[in-house]
Simulated assay, not measured.
Amino acid sequence: MEHKDAIRVLNSILSTKEKEILIRIARKLPSWINSDHLTWLGLFGAVISGVGYFLSNWGDGFLWLSSMGFVINWFGDSLDGTLARIRNRQRPVYGFFLDHNIDGITAFLICIGAGTSPYVSFSSALLLLAGYYLLSIFTYINTYLKGEFKISYGNLGPTELRIVIILINTLFIIMPDRNYGIDHWGVYVHLYDYFVLGIALILFGIFFFNFLKEKKRFGKIDPPHKA
């Protein structure tokens, strides 16, 4: 199977500094640790996050566990590819297949966990998951058509999103009234739901904006046949 590794495009707010940190860490890792270990570690972090959200039914302090899971997920998910490149052990086909399937499972675990917490309705969590999957599908289609794997949109990437979620978790731990919400026509909507819906709307907005832009671009590349 012939395969050309796609060009990675990451222009987020923290990407330059993050890349420097990841390279330093990768060079110090022992030789027995490989990229697969880090990929599975990232998935383990997602499991911790999901479990932390579920356990928050018995105490707000479990949100710290969920936040720790995001940090572990960042470490594994961000470092696996860096380690492969530093050691010149890239596996473009296998790596792309494994990494992005794991990304899908990661999003599923975190969103389902959040949906079973006392802070987020299950429907809001599924809407966020749908927004993530829609943008992911768009990214993978563009990777195939353009040979360009775009990781960030609008100067925001996975790392920035993780930080936002950790900050929201922290806010709900320290808020004096953690059960604050608004009653909309008999339906009680928790404050956390507004954060989740806001992130979901951003994902949908990024998708539709880029979809229309790329549709116009591909339409020029592949114009309709003249009658």
Results as ranks from 00 to 15, higher is better:
P92T: 10
D80I: 14
L98P: 08
S78N: 09
W40G: 11
G59D: 05
T39F: 10
N101I: 14
I102L: 12
R89A: 14
V93N: 06
R85M: 04
T116A: 11
S67F: 03
T39M: 11
V71F: 05
S124M: 10
L79E: 02
V120Y: 08
I110L: 09
G95Q: 05
G69C: 07
F54S: 05
A114S: 12
I86D: 06
W64L: 14
S49A: 15
F62K: 01
S121V: 12
T116K: 10
G81Y: 02
G113L: 08
N57A: 08
G50A: 10
L127R: 01
M68K: 09
T106Q: 08
S78K: 05
N73K: 08
I72A: 11
W58K: 12
I48M: 09
Q90R: 13
L65M: 13
N57H: 09
W74V: 11
D99F: 06
F96K: 05
I110K: 02
S66G: 15
M68N: 10
G69V: 03
I72N: 06
A46L: 09
M68H: 07
Q90Y: 07
S67Q: 11
Y94C: 03
T116Y: 13
V47I: 15
G113N: 07
L126F: 01
N73S: 15
Y94E: 02
A84Q: 08
G104W: 01
G42K: 07
W64Y: 15
L127N: 06
F70L: 15
S78V: 00
S117Y: 07
I112P: 00
V120G: 01
G50K: 05
F97W: 07
V71T: 15
R87P: 00
L83K: 01
W58Q: 09
D80N: 12
W58F: 14
D80F: 13
A84F: 08
D103R: 06
W40F: 15
N88F: 09
F44K: 02
G113K: 01
S49P: 13
L127A: 13
G45Y: 12
R91G: 07
L98F: 12
H100C: 08
R89C: 09
S78T: 00
G76R: 02
G81D: 03
D80E: 10
A114P: 06
S124E: 01
I86F: 11
T82S: 00
I112K: 04
Q90F: 04
G50D: 06
V93S: 06
I86C: 04
V93W: 05
L98W: 04
G104Y: 02
D77K: 08
S67V: 05
Y119M: 13
N88I: 11
G115F: 09
G104T: 05
S67E: 08
C111F: 03
C111K: 00
G52T: 07
G69L: 03
S67N: 11
N88K: 15
N101Y: 12
F96N: 10
R91N: 12
F62M: 02
L98C: 08
S123F: 15
N88Y: 12
I48L: 12
G76V: 04
G81K: 05
G59T: 12
A125E: 01
F44N: 03
L65R: 04
R85W: 01
N73T: 11
L43C: 08
L41K: 02
I102Y: 01
V47S: 01
D77C: 05
G52W: 03
W64T: 09
I102M: 05
S117N: 10
